[in-house]
Design a protein around this nucleic acid. Sequence first.
DNA 1: AGTTAAGCGAGACGGTACGTCGTGTCTTGTG
DNA 2: CACAAGACACGACGTACCGTCTCGCTTAACT
Lengths: 194, 194, 194, 194
Amino acid sequence: MTNTPTTTKRGRPRLPEVDQAILNAALELVGEVGINKMSMDELARRADVAKATIYRRWSSKEALILDALTSAMSPIDDADTGSLHGDLMSYLGELIARFDQNSMNDILPHLIEAGCHDPAIRASLDDYVRFRRQPLERIYERALSRSELSSDADIGVLIDAIIGPFVYRRLLSHGPIDTAFVHRLVAVIHPDAK
Amino acid sequence: MTNTPTTTKRGRPRLPEVDQAILNAALELVGEVGINKMSMDELARRADVAKATIYRRWSSKEALILDALTSAMSPIDDADTGSLHGDLMSYLGELIARFDQNSMNDILPHLIEAGCHDPAIRASLDDYVRFRRQPLERIYERALSRSELSSDADIGVLIDAIIGPFVYRRLLSHGPIDTAFVHRLVAVIHPDAK
Amino acid sequence: MTNTPTTTKRGRPRLPEVDQAILNAALELVGEVGINKMSMDELARRADVAKATIYRRWSSKEALILDALTSAMSPIDDADTGSLHGDLMSYLGELIARFDQNSMNDILPHLIEAGCHDPAIRASLDDYVRFRRQPLERIYERALSRSELSSDADIGVLIDAIIGPFVYRRLLSHGPIDTAFVHRLVAVIHPDAK
Amino acid sequence: MTNTPTTTKRGRPRLPEVDQAILNAALELVGEVGINKMSMDELARRADVAKATIYRRWSSKEALILDALTSAMSPIDDADTGSLHGDLMSYLGELIARFDQNSMNDILPHLIEAGCHDPAIRASLDDYVRFRRQPLERIYERALSRSELSSDADIGVLIDAIIGPFVYRRLLSHGPIDTAFVHRLVAVIHPDAK
DNA sequence: AGTTAAGCGAGACGGTACGTCGTGTCTTGTG
DNA sequence: CACAAGACACGACGTACCGTCTCGCTTAACT
């Protein structure tokens, strides 16, 4: 009994390196000129690929950029340091590093807007959000089991309170996102920790 | 000889109602199709105005949209209720109402991206951000003078911690933004208040 | 009382020189690469004009080419030389000159095919055909009034018999189209003339 | 040791029915949409054949269409009826029938144009033209030997004068091509015959 | 019987052109 | 001058077609 997919592979297979060439060129271009100014013609030129080849693989510019983005997205581990404070400092330190990379910077706002009209993009963006929240969920559950939090704490709101200020600084207030910020933020939300 | 201002007004004066017609049509259109899909031709059609008339008043699509946005922006007063908790609940209650209006919803992400490339937009957006932070600054300064906060509290981070989660829920996690959320958030950041 | 056209001219008038620039570039290009290989992008480049400007004025490549063609089309006068033979020799001498110009050469076959599917082109082509037949009609009517033809002669068929061989030589048999050919053809169809 | 032809046939032989399927589909398609609008992708779909299979057998669209055309081309015999008039009427009657079939109608103009740029097509088209002239050459040679023509008659021009009007009517003036036309045309060119 | 060369359907691929749309500027005529 | 109307240059859009190129499979002919 084989578990091959229902449809037998027919015709010439898509070149696997083409996907990567396009995604790389897309990230490069978005970094240079921004999403709105990125043209599919230029992208095709950069990736050394025909425009039709791009549209064969992605249905829209947004879908492509979302893929490019998630392809460049690396997970953040939630190291168990033995305390809520240590866990948070470790995670947020990594989060700072991710924010410093330029991949997500200019891209996020556009994706949010695109998501207003395109359900597929909205769904992928939601995935991304969950992907970033999960480590914090585990961190707070460990804190609960260590009794570092009262048992009626609302973990969802805690996570909003931790991540929200990062997003807000990055997108709107343009305050620095550094270790000092992390320390002060954690001190505000968990004044008793460590 | 007249003592009109330095530059004598010559030629036909601009019709004052035209500005409003354009701004209203812009808000309407952005709400329907989003900023990127809003075209200046369609806008001119909706406002029953010539395209040149729009460009005579605004230098670019972004500048126009920014104006449309701020024209729809109403201030939030920081009522002095006598306590930090009361002040916050009052302010955040108003903020919820503002978020429920659709003016800023889809617009914000695009403005952020546009601001990456256009310094004028960036500046106006920064103004908007300060405009929203100011009431909170006054609230926290009153709290300091009432000794509801320790004297070394970092007001900037406190404001980030309050506003950040709102922005994050609106743009990314899509959690509800309601009174319950406000209560929980304030309980997390100021557990001892009231 | 004015007899201005029903619709008052509004908006910026079309630049009159643009039409000619496009038509000239079209004739030039068609002469170089043929109709099928003529691209609208290249045409726009040559005419120093935006592609949209072309499509604002002509609905299709064929319609444009037809216009280019007829714009380059000069009428042939039917000089009354006093005899059928003289009239024919005069007209056909001019016709030879027209065939030698390259305007109509490669264009005709394509227009014919385009006319199979596009009624507007078919109509314009019919106009062209009538335009070329008219002088012959007058020539044969004069010959009738001079009693150089029997009164039951079928002028339509006579014209077919005169023009047909020219078209056939040009398009298919590629025989020479010169004075000798004209003499022999007239000798075949009107052996008694002059 | 075998004395097979120089190149031994190796590998799977070409399916013989595929050629006909392609040619038939090509004629069908050309009749429907014209040559320029006929796409090789659609042709492959219609013939239920892979595009590569087409290009394995013909080097270009034009070559294929030319083959499709000549495959549908049937010869016209020059029956010896004993008189020039009878021979012509017999031949031209057959020619009418050929013109009524749709095979050559829309195809001819395109072939002519294609022949301007592609020498192979030009050559094949010239073959076709000779193919249609040959019976007339034999008819006129018989007429000469019967002394129905003066010995200095220019047979080439006579043939042009006979065929030219047919081509002209079919392609340009769109006059009827029927027995009445044949009678009148022959009466014009050979007024004394029969 | 196994090997090998080619035929074949399917469809990806690089190009090139298509006809449309959007932006910001301009040029008319009219108020 | 302002304004409506709309032409204009520029450039991106997403699609269609051409002719070529892999794929996996099939079909003979030659070992």
